[in-house]
Amino acid sequence: MNKIGMIDEWYPVGLFSQLDPNGRDTWLMGEPIRVAIDGEGNPLVTGGNGRVLAVCVRYGHVWASLGKPDHDLFPIPEADQPGRRLVEVGVVRVRCSPLRAVENFLDIAHFPFVHTDILGSEPHTEVQNYKVEIREEEDEVWATQVKFYQPQAAKSASGGITTEYMYRVPAPTCSVLYKTCPPRPSEWDVITLFVQPLFEDVCDVWPWMALYDDDTPMTDLIHFQQTIFLQDRSILENQIPTLLPLDPGMEIPTRADLTSVAYRRWLKRHNYTYGAQLVAQ
């Protein structure tokens, strides 16, 4: 599919803290781009023909658009709460559709098999019913009341607990996860997945976190998240077809997959099809 429907969206293209005056060459939806910092400390992203792309800086990352975004980047109000540790996890390149990377992030049923003894373990495999909706006003996919038993839900967790989650898809290649926060039961930890679509079948995944955790060393927080994503990568690079099928028939969803069903429906409705496969193809 083409990128027309997604061209006016914002995409992460690098960490603001790691900008380099010489620039770093990368791609955005098949177009070569250069991500640099100008003399005044502002990010400068140029496209293949040297044109300057729209940029903004938020959640530790530089965001760029190939088109003319008519909206600000989605809000994450919790990101501005005092007392949170902001964790720049870095980047993991995955040879998969950017949409498949997001869909995997929305999935909990794989925890016992892919993140064994960390995010899940047999025989605690059951996915209880949860709620999924497309919130029309915000135009976002939301899954709430998601519960799962986890042997080690976070670096700060000791022993198994039933963790509660909320998932949000505010942009076609981004997801925000709200998760039970072991040290502060009244708050949610925020874990995001920002995906840079390099091509329809290659993406750079930039996870980012805003946590209440004053004790765990930063290195351990980063390693924990990288371990999880490398486990996911072994799945994402071995799915057939590589592109995410948006029409029914190719794959078989169950009740546990309702978030994925809503995400696919929302993508199709908006013509967010870069990285997707349609029956007509």
């Binding site: 049923a109 794989h110 098999f113 072994s234 799915q239 057939i240 794959e251 078989i252 969803p253």
Partner: peptide, 27 residues
């Protein structure tokens, strides 16, 4: 066939228990 019909994961990455083959993605 080397493809789980649920999410398209290669079954050759799976695991065998007893008399059945399981997909590594969701079991």
């Amino acid at each position: 066939a080397d493809r789980c019909p649920h999410r398209g994961m290669r079954l050759s990455h799976g695991f065998v228990r007893g008399e059945a083959l399981s997909c590594i993605y969701h079991g």
